[in-house]
């Protein structure tokens, strides 16, 4: 059995480690992670004109409910940042429209969202599917009501295509996938 002196030594050591963990939690990277998980990420705008598409100012991006989503106004259509759901959507090909609250969260994870008008010709959709399958870990492909043409979006960035241009789509995906993940993932590329 443990003596009283040994027991106090064990208690002090355990308490010290527990306190160290708590200090790490409240002062280390976890603090930012916690804030971004609970309240959404924050980052400075990074226009970077050398990249494909156009930059859009970053909006505050808190987590919201479906009820709150009905009153959200984004600064682009489709949105490139802003309030979103706590849930996300996995990369892949979808046959139904993706809610903005999910799509924006996917953008926040560094994914590229490709959306197309419901009246897009089937061969164009097939072409987009081939690209989405090639970049299956990075791209979400879905139709979007009231959209004309094809919209490519990444965090803080958008490119609207009146017609399908595979090279432009691929360039957008290659340049912008993984650029942001609750914060800028790399130094400026321009």
């Amino acid at each position: 059995m443990t003596s009283a002196g040994q027991r106090w030594a064990w208690r002090i050591a355990t308490l010290t480690l527990a306190l160290a963990a708590i200090v790490a939690l409240v002062s280390g990277p976890y603090r930012q992670y916690f804030a971004s998980t609970v309240a959404g990420s924050r980052a400075d705008d990074r226009p970077e004109p050398c990249l494909p598409g156009e930059a859009r100012p970053l909006l505050d991006s808190p987590h919201i409910s479906q009820a709150q989503a009905q009153s959200v106004r984004y600064n682009s259509d489709p949105p490139t940042s802003g309030p979103h759901f706590a849930f996300v959507v996995a990369p892949g090909i979808y046959s139904d429209e993706i809610a903005d609250g999910l799509a924006v969260h996917a953008l926040e994870h560094g994914h590229v969202v490709i959306q197309y008008s419901p009246d897009t010709p089937p061969d164009t959709v097939d072409g987009l599917r081939v690209v989405a399958q090639r970049y299956a870990a990075d791209v979400i492909l879905a139709p979007r009501a009231h959209l004309r043409g094809i919209a490519l979006t990444a965090w803080g960035r958008i490119d609207l295509l009146p017609t399908y241009d595979e090279a432009r789509v691929v360039a957008f995906v290659n340049a912008l996938r993984g650029r942001y993940n609750h914060g800028w993932a790399h130094a400026s590329r321009c």
Binding site: T37, V38, H63, S65, A67
Partner: peptide, 23 residues
């Protein structure tokens, strides 16, 4: 629990409270 469960529960709880109180 603190780094994964608590943030998840807070963000999901916010979503739940918003939906349950509004809809």
């Amino acid at each position: 629990f603190l780094t994964f469960a608590v943030p998840s529960m807070i963000s999901t709880g916010t979503w739940l409270a918003g939906n349950l109180s509004t809809h």
